[in-house]
């Protein structure tokens, strides 16, 4: 334990709070003298934080209020003037950022998701006015997102725009979350299809005129290997009239 090379291997265990209090205190003292270790602990903590995002849950509705109500009774601490021994993580100032959307790959879906949220909110407003259908639809989307086996696959549309296909075999539901679709005018629509062994099964139309949004597909993903999008005459077609503008594979 006193050997410094041996101590250095404790960065992982320390970042995961897997040391006993005595070991943690000893390692913290070591950190104060080892900039390389401090840097590594920072990075590994940052990594562990990502493990936490991966298990995030939606908090119950009352929790926010309970926390907010208790604030006026909690005295806030002044800034620390003297560094405490237990957290001696010194080092160069490092790049700040919000880590939870670090992956650039998330951009497309984040945009779609934002729209989804806006649309869902609109639907919610309508639902409050008595539109049960919208409420049901939003609830279906929400259930789909929460499904433990839900998968997301993202694709881009020929000619611009993109979409993410969310599907759950267990629920037998698929959603199409799209953004920036090129406008088609009034005579044509985007039509969704399940691709199954080379044949295309109609799965509904994207709401005409809408470029961003989310919708559930008609029918389930069972047996399907992809979701395809074609441009069809207004009202849709029983079979695709042209090659797909987008194909997003779905895991079977």
């Amino acid at each position: 334990m006193n050997d410094s090379a041996d101590l250095h291997t404790l960065t992982g265990a320390y970042a995961l709070d897997a040391l006993s209090p005595a070991e943690a205190a000893e390692f913290a003292r070591h950190l104060a003298e080892c900039p390389a270790c401090s840097q590594e602990v920072r990075e590994l903590r940052e990594t562990a934080t990502r493990l936490a995002f991966a298990v995030a849950q939606v908090p119950p509705p009352g929790l926010r209020d309970r926390v907010m109500w208790s604030l006026p009774e909690v005295r806030q601490l002044p800034p620390l003037v003297v560094e405490p021994v237990v957290v001696p993580l010194r080092g160069p100032r490092w790049r700040q950022r919000l880590p939870y959307l670090a992956a650039a790959a998330c951009l497309a879906i984040a945009a779609g998701a934002g729209v989804w949220a806006v649309q869902a909110q609109r639907d919610a407003d309508r639902a409050r006015d008595g539109n049960i259908q919208a409420e049901q639809r939003a609830s279906d989307l929400e259930t789909l997102m929460a499904a433990p086996d839900a998968t997301l696959r993202t694709g881009s549309m020929r000619g611009g725009g993109g979409a993410t296909v969310v599907s759950s075999q267990r629920l037998g539901r698929t959603a199409f979350v799209y953004h920036d679709l090129p406008p088609l005018g009034t005579a044509r629509v985007y039509q969704l299809w399940y691709s199954q062994n080379g044949s295309m099964i109609p799965a509904g139309l994207v709401t005409p005129g809408r470029t961003d949004g989310a919708q559930l597909l008609a029918g389930g993903p069972r047996g399907a290997d992809a979701v395809g999008v074609t441009v069809e005459p207004s009202g849709g077609s029983p079979t695709p009239s042209g090659p797909p503008v987008m194909v997003v594979p779905i895991p079977s």
């Binding site: 990502r50 849950q57 984040a110 989804w116 939003a138």
Partner: peptide, 24 residues
């Protein structure tokens, strides 16, 4: 059992799901 997700949190779930997939 867990609480069912609030209605306006759907988009957050998309992000969480992505995060989860990447971590997995």
């Amino acid at each position: 059992r867990d609480h069912s997700p609030a209605f306006d949190e759907v988009s957050e779930q998309v992000e969480r799901r992505l995060e989860r997939e990447q971590v997995r």
